[in-house]
Nucleic acid binder design. Structure first.
Lengths: 218, 218
DNA sequence: CTAATAAATGAATGGCATTCATTTAGTGGT
DNA sequence: ACCACTAAATGAATGCCATTCATTTATTAG
């Protein structure tokens, strides 16, 4: 049943197409924003588009395809503008923070992205092109560009998960006495009173990577 | 139906308990080794233990619990021995490679680990204790220890995904002409003929992090 | 001895992605 | 103008999944 309220569409091809990939992507994003990734089911997606679930399969091959559409849409939101206007260090810094922030809200996509051939994701490919051109212009040896980007990306994806971790993730509970070193370190960090510990760790790692990679430039 | 062949157990509590958490963990690991994480279903797990699926719920609360048991078991396999015997740099290096190697085979656990309160995972907590003690002994300022470990872990988790990526992940296909910088960088890396590009990126990032963090020591 | 608890079975339950037969509408070729 | 083909919708399965529950039997605590 495509619609609960309102006149339901009669069987057969409608005069004007109801669905397309852009509409499916937009509906998926709305759904994710409202109910999270648990709420993103093919049935719910169909319902939000006033369509039967099977109709979706005329436009995507699988749910993974939907996630791919979402991923590519989100990648286009990552800010790469600094590569055209700023020195390499600050361009990388802005890109990395933006990249992490976008996907921290969408960690269920990370397993999809990580093994996604870039051919299937034009916006993602476009991001890589801009970033690698930035590295090249900054004097990076060509054969290290991809490895450096991959390393940064790995750090970014891992850090995106970290953003979603519960605040008390390092509470050692009843084991505190048997883990004095770790418990002390956790308390000592907490004493600094940072609002977002994930940001501190991300900044620390990112600056180390930027400094280390910066030294590779010729 | 608990068993397909053989005499099936009659209804009611058996004289000796059939299941316990250690047995469930071992069976889950066998199953994952044989059929991967897709093959790890509560039904398959029960079948491999000659038990009805519902019997599992006397020993774990949910499938997530099973993944947690597996995760904690695997963490115990991560090599932290170098922290007792070697300089900080090489200890971190060995730990990080070992950690990545263990979880590269188990990437579906990463979303679970990333948000897992350490209270629920004693082996994981033990690893943190050893590692943080190593950082402390190496002269790390206490309030930076946790952030540095988190940053390294983020990089490690992201890199574990990278290991599983298909070899042709960066093949830009028909878009090659419109992405000259990226395509050139990919070709240039390929020309080096490394067997495992993921290892090159991991090494590059890890050495940058070690160098950057090493400078924090007092 | 008896009540409570623990550990098993087996039969649901509801949700999920996906497939398929069917219907209807547009399209390209002769 | 006709006809075959393709595209896009419906609605009814299908099979798998994690989880729950009533029931049975055995052990354990008081």
């Amino acid at each position: 049943m495509p619609q609960t309220g309102g006149a339901r569409r009669r069987v057969g091809r409608p005069a004007a197409a109801v669905l397309d990939q852009a509409g499916i992507t937009a509906a998926a994003l709305r759904l994710i924003g409202k109910d999270g990734y648990d709420g993103l089911t093919m049935a719910a997606l169909a319902r939000s588009l006033h369509v039967a679930p099977s109709a979706l399969y005329n436009h995507v091959e699988s749910k993974r395809d939907v996630l791919l559409l979402v991923e590519d849409h989100l990648t286009a939101l990552v800010d790469v503008t600094a590569f055209a206007a700023e020195p390499w260090e600050s361009a990388v810094r802005k890109w990395a923070w933006s990249y992490r922030d976008v996907f921290a809200e969408h960690t269920p996509l990370i397993p999809v992205i990580a093994v996604l051939p870039v051919t299937d994701a034009p916006q993602t490919l476009a991001m890589y092109e801009t970033v690698s051109a930035g590295f090249r212009a900054a004097g990076f040896p060509e054969e290290r560009i991809v490895s450096a980007i991959v390393a940064l990306e790995s750090f970014i994806f891992g850090s995106a998960y970290d953003v979603t971790a519960p605040a008390d993730i390092f509470d050692s509970g009843s084991m505190a006495e048997s883990t004095p070193s770790f418990t002390g370190a956790v308390r000592s960090l907490a004493a600094l009173g940072h609002e977002k510990p994930a940001d501190v760790a991300f900044s620390l790692g990112l600056e180390a990577l930027i400094a280390g990679f910066g030294a590779l430039r010729e």
